[in-house]
């Protein structure tokens, strides 16, 4: 039988062109995500946050106060307490007579920058380490896995505080500290995934073709890790944001007078009985942001792998 004869006898590839064909898993996930109303709302909110963070300067000019500027006229009540929301200060003032709205806006910048940067750094380290542990066999795996166990069993907040106390607080240190205590969780997940992918036949196929380890890792393993890693990144961002706020709240994060939601809340703690707005607005900003990222992460997971159960059932 020749090839031409075969053409006539072989099955004719009858494939319906119903729209899902030839679209990458990403395109399919994207289509699913776009139909998810929760994801759309959360995504829009996060974009808005990003815009607020990016245009914090012009916004504060528009409002008329800089984040560190004290209003000597209307900033404090005659008792020296923060002034409640009014026409002068839409969300009231803080303990030093500064505009809460402008400070919350600038706080967005810190939260997003530190949260996203730390999460991305943690994911990068975690992916590389996890990939190495999972791919290069039992000896490497044993060492790297122990290392991850050690990092994971650190009482991390305590350690973070201790570390910052020595190095001195700054945004970069904060990002480093958060990333340092978050990468191991990512590493563990990536390691597990890599271990199972490594046993797949297509890896053996690549090896039988003579592909190098590096090629197999980047061309065959990595694309299969993108989905779980993407989900984990979206869920790690809110964790990092809360971590940042907590460090700032404890006085080892962003140093005043630079505003962050955490150090605002810390200042508010002393006067919350008299000035609820000072506690409430940065608190709401923080909660809304983490909520949005959590919901979005859940939707992303859902879109990438419709079989898994949602963390938050609708």
């Amino acid at each position: 039988m020749s090839t031409t004869e075969l053409f006539e006898s072989a099955e004719v590839p009858t494939i319906d062109t119903s729209g899902t064909l030839g679209r990458s898993p990403w395109q399919l996930a994207w289509a699913r995500l776009r139909r998810d109303r929760v994801a759309l709302v959360c995504g829009a909110f996060i974009v808005l946050l990003g815009l607020v963070a990016a245009f914090a300067g012009p916004l504060s000019k528009l409002i008329g106060w800089s984040p560190t500027q004290q209003d000597r006229i209307n900033g404090l009540t005659p008792d020296g307490l923060p002034a409640p929301p009014s026409v002068h200060h839409l969300l009231g003032t803080d303990n030093l007579g500064r505009d809460v709205l402008v400070r919350v806006i600038y706080g967005t910048r810190v939260s997003l920058a530190v949260g996203v940067a730390a999460a991305v750094a943690a994911v990068l380290i975690g992916v590389i380490v996890g990939l190495i542990a999972g791919y290069f066999g039992p000896a490497v795996d044993a060492i790297v896995s122990r290392l991850m166990d050690v990092v994971l069993s650190f009482p991390f907040l305590l350690f973070a505080i201790a570390l910052v106390s020595v190095v001195g607080p700054s945004e970069l240190v904060e990002i480093g500290v958060i990333a340092f205590f978050s990468w191991a969780a990512v590493g563990r997940i990536v390691r597990g995934q890599t271990l199972s992918i490594r046993e797949k036949e297509y890896i053996e196929a690549a090896r039988s073709l003579g592909a190098s380890d590096r090629r197999i890792m980047f061309v065959d393993v990595l694309p299969n890790l993108v989905a779980p890693v993407l989900v984990y990144t979206t869920l790690l961002i809110p964790v990092s944001i809360v971590f940042e706020a907590t460090l700032s709240y404890l006085g080892v994060g962003i140093i005043p007078p630079t505003p962050s939601w955490g150090n605002m809340i810390s200042d508010a703690q002393d006067v919350y009985q008299q000035a609820w707005w000072f506690l409430l607005f940065p608190g709401i900003a923080l909660i809304a942001t983490t909520l949005a990222f959590n919901l979005l992460g859940d939707s992303v997971r859902d879109a990438l792998d419709p079989r898994t159960e949602r963390l938050f059932a609708k």
Partner: peptide, 17 residues
Amino acid sequence: LIGLSFPTFVLGLLLLY
């Protein structure tokens, strides 16, 4: 959902309030 998104110290201060 709400519990997961509430930072501990915010929740504590709100409870106090």
